[in-house]
Nucleic acid binder design. Structure first.
Lengths: 217, 217
DNA sequence: TTTCAGCTTGTTACATGTAACACTCATCAT
DNA sequence: ATGATGAGTGTTACATGTAACAAGCTGAAA
């Protein structure tokens, strides 16, 4: 049985490109997303660009000012704390559910991420963050609740807009990795409640670290 | 200081109209949302209709089939259970936060809803459901986490698409009302943890009721 | 200097044109 | 009957036209 081909639509390509550009920081928070300009750059007409931009607004990566255009979302400290608060609830739930549903493949993938992080040591913060994101993604993708997966991924992505508000010091990364190991252990033992608690504790602890770091300074 | 006027854009009007029509059941789940047809009916051009339809997809009220149009979302039992599971986590968090932030006005509004439900008795299920929705809405709107508010409202709305899967018998409504009272009490006493637990228990209990009702039958 | 009308520029929001596509149904060969 | 084929219809996806609008600038009046 062949899959229907479904060639990518222009709007999908544009959406991916814009998303990638935003998350890579090429389109920094606050940058105006001018539809005609983007259309010129991407060599397509304005229609699919307009749609793609509106989709980004729906994803929380951009904000719309009625009749005055769209700009890349700017996150302040309280936005970031909001996001952690939400992620703690959602991913806690996801981890609890995932504990019961994870396949051997999933567990191996999780293990792979942790090992890669170990090997990577703390050489490059960017790569480390990617693995961190992958760790969380695997869990929310195996939780079995499609909407939960979707929202958790949206929140995790949106969070990347916080840029310099995120903590990248070796000490913080190491601690996170430690907590990830605890979560992975609970998942491996199929202990749902423990996984849930560990995940929630992890994210609330990070939130707390962010808060104290940025308010005492 | 005057507010900027910000006349409604056509796309906003259309979005509201379509949303209302879907939630009222005038556009039943599964109905195709043909952009040209809707544009003709609403006497506007296709552009704002197309945008509005895509926004509804983003809200979860409609689903898109690439190159084959959009239709009003159809929810089955497992979708509904997913939604309850998510709402339990999100609104549990919201209730816990709201306990600390509710103003006297908010508490009075909550009380008002409960009283109105009492007066309404169980005469009309539709009206009763509206008050039920309002109860939950007040709480998520006072939680202080804007994103949490937004997602919780989206989920509550989406749930209304489940139509006949929802339980409307007097016994169920009465039990829900009872649980609402418990939640309200915890909020009034500013007991965050109790409010959180009560809210989560309420929604998981309803989910359980829905599950058993529709699987044993 | 301050302020404000008027011009300029670029955009948004909406309208409309159209090629490619997806469905239906009838027709025809097997 | 069954399945392939092609016409016909309506749609999506993309392109483009344009009025109303927002923001910035300039220069004249206060």
């Amino acid at each position: 049985m062949l899959q229907p081909v479904a060639r990518d639509r222009v709007v999908d390509v544009v959406r991916e490109r814009l998303r990638a550009a935003i998350l890579a920081g090429e389109l920094a928070p606050g940058t105006r997303l001018s539809v005609p300009e983007l259309a010129r750059h991407l060599q397509v007409s304005r229609s699919p660009v307009r749609e793609a931009v509106l989709l980004l607004v729906g994803e929380g990566l951009a904000v719309e000012h009625s009749r005055r255009g769209v700009e890349v979302a700017r996150l302040n400290l309280s936005d970031l704390l909001e996001l952690y608060e939400l992620r703690a609830a959602l991913e806690g739930l996801a981890a609890g559910l995932a504990a019961e549903r994870m396949t051997g493949t999933d567990l191996a993938a999780l293990r792979g991420v942790l090992d890669a992080q170990g090997a990577e040591a703390l050489r490059e913060a960017g790569r480390f963050r990617d693995l961190d994101a992958r760790f969380h993604q695997i869990i929310v993708q195996t939780c079995g609740n499609a909407r939960l997966t979707r929202y958790a991924e949206l929140l995790a992505r949106e969070m990347r807009l916080a840029g310099s508000l995120l903590l990248n010091t070796p000490a913080h990364l190491r601690l996170s990795q430690e907590e990830h190991r605890t979560i992975e252990r609970a998942l491996r033992q199929r202990d749902g409640p423990a996984a849930e608690v560990a995940m929630r504790a992890h994210l609330t602890r990070v939130a707390q670290a962010v808060r104290t770091y940025h308010t005492q300074r």
